[in-house]
């Protein structure tokens, strides 16, 4: 595929896709909200591509935006306060080269959290978004132990002032939802938006299953890595520069 695809070309391509496969809204899903009343579709696989060469160690735009979006007030207890996304600094011991990257739920295709959950609360939506169904979460925290990315938090305290789109309460596990509420409305995750607005535009969100999406095209032509790819959990979050 040519690299200088213009917007018009893209739209033409989109039209073709839609004509070829009516009912599959590969393009529409990225362009706008899913129609009310329709379920998340396995035709999509939402993911992130994070360019760590652009990510600055001092910048916490994504982390701050996540806390604001999801209504995560803390108790000044960094070890146990809820955290859906965190900044990690890694150093190459040989060269001393360090860089910084955000780590959140990697929305694995084979999520270990789902495997170990005794109630079915840990679940993967049809479009690949991994969630905790807090209605049936019993707070056992097996999923937290199973997650290789340390992506989940536990609400230790009674909560108040929750955001309407992120109900959360004491005794349940919680984590990044890839901003499912925004994605369902045709938007992108708050972290990605903030990274572009006040950070270093290191994060790209999109549909890995849609060959014409920017993320799929970049993943197809550029080298990307996944953290602990050896585990075979097939994360939807890819990194560059690590």
């Amino acid at each position: 595929m040519s690299h200088d695809t213009s917007r018009r070309e893209l739209l033409k391509g989109a039209a073709a896709v839609v004509t070829l496969a009516p009912g599959l809204t590969l393009i529409a899903a990225e362009a706008g909200a899913r129609a009310p009343g329709t379920a998340a579709s396995p035709a999509n696989r939402w993911g992130l591509l994070i360019d760590t060469t652009k990510c600055d160690e001092g910048c916490t735009a994504c982390v701050d935006a996540c806390k604001a979006e999801m209504g995560l007030g803390g108790h000044d207890r960094p070890l146990t306060d809820a955290q859906y996304i965190r900044k990690v600094t890694v150093t190459d011991p040989k060269s001393g080269h360090t860089h910084s990257l955000p780590v959140m739920c990697q929305h694995c295709a084979n999520p270990p959290c789902v495997d170990v959950c005794p109630t079915g609360a840990s679940m993967k939506r049809a479009d690949g978004i991994v969630l905790v169904d807090r209605h049936i979460c019993i707070g056992c925290r097996y999923c937290m132990m199973a997650c290789p990315y340390k992506a989940r938090s536990f609400a230790h305290e009674d909560q108040s002032g929750q955001k309407e789109h992120n109900p959360r309460g004491k005794g349940c596990v919680e984590a990044c939802t890839l901003c499912a509420h925004r994605v369902d409305a045709g938007g992108q995750p708050a972290c990605v938006e903030a990274c572009a607005a006040t950070g270093n535009a290191a994060m790209l969100f999109g549909d890995l299953n849609d060959p014409s999406s920017e993320i799929a095209r970049r993943v197809a032509r550029e080298a990307t890595t996944r953290i602990r790819a050896d585990l075979g959990v097939d994360p939807a979050v890819r990194y560059q520069g690590i």
């Binding site: 009343g37 379920a39 978004i129 499912a180």
Partner: peptide
């Protein structure tokens, strides 16, 4: 929550 159906 599980199926992602909004606007219902």
């Amino acid at each position: 929550l599980r199926k992602g159906i909004r606007g219902a």
